[in-house]
Amino acid sequence: MIPMPFFSLIDAILQLYTLIVFVMVIMSWLIGFNVINRHNQIVDMIWRTLIALTEPALRPIRRMMPSLGGIDISPLVLLLGVFFLREMNMWLAARYGIS
């Protein structure tokens, strides 16, 4: 029997990763439209951290997807995958976690 806090921890991690992907997407738009400048040391540190956290998951998605010009929808595909994992986690919690 898997304890219920395990499922809550997995859900919290997936929620945090969703937030990280959203922040990375918004920050990429802000950098692309020159609203924020990557030459700022704090901005560059945050950007490199976000890239380090999201790129390992986005790279395989980008390799499999066809080129859509200048549009990158790999974060959308990643978010759909994370939402699917959250739903599966809730289903498993309901099926196995609750006595």
Rank of each mutant, 00 (worst) to 15 (best):
I10H: 04
I10Q: 04
D11I: 06
A12P: 07
A12G: 14
L14P: 03
L14S: 12
L14V: 14
Q15L: 09
Y17P: 00
T18F: 06
T18H: 06
L19R: 09
L19G: 12
L19T: 12
I20G: 02
I20S: 01
V21S: 00
V21F: 00
F22P: 01
F22H: 00
V23A: 02
V23N: 02
V25L: 02
V25E: 00
V25N: 00
I26V: 15
M27F: 04
S28L: 04
S28R: 07
W29L: 11
W29S: 05
W29K: 11
W29E: 05
W29H: 11
L30H: 01
L30M: 11
I31A: 02
I31W: 03
G32E: 04
G32H: 06
F33Y: 03
F33R: 01
N34H: 13
N34F: 12
V35M: 09
V35F: 07
I36W: 00
I36G: 00
I36A: 01
I36T: 02
N37T: 14
N37P: 08
N37L: 13
N37G: 12
R38D: 06
H39F: 12
H39N: 14
H39P: 03
N40R: 13
Q41P: 08
Q41K: 15
I42K: 15
V43M: 11
D44A: 12
M45L: 15
M45F: 15
M45D: 14
I46D: 01
I46T: 10
W47K: 06
L50E: 02
L50Y: 03
L50F: 08
I51D: 03
L53S: 07
L53H: 08
T54D: 02
T54G: 04
T54I: 09
T54M: 05
E55N: 14
E55W: 09
A57T: 10
L58Y: 10
L58V: 12
P60W: 12
I61V: 09
R62A: 07
R63T: 05
R63M: 08
R63V: 08
M64K: 12
M64S: 09
M64I: 09
M65F: 00
P66M: 07
P66K: 11
S67T: 14
L68Y: 10
G70W: 10
I71M: 05
D72H: 04
P75F: 05
P75I: 04
P75V: 05
P75Q: 08
V77G: 07
L78G: 02
L79K: 03
L79C: 04
L80D: 03
G81R: 07
V82I: 14
F83C: 15
F83K: 15
F83M: 15
F83W: 15
F84M: 05
L85T: 11
E87D: 11
E87N: 11
E87M: 13
M88F: 15
N89S: 10
M90S: 14
W91N: 12
L92G: 14
A93C: 07
A93Q: 10
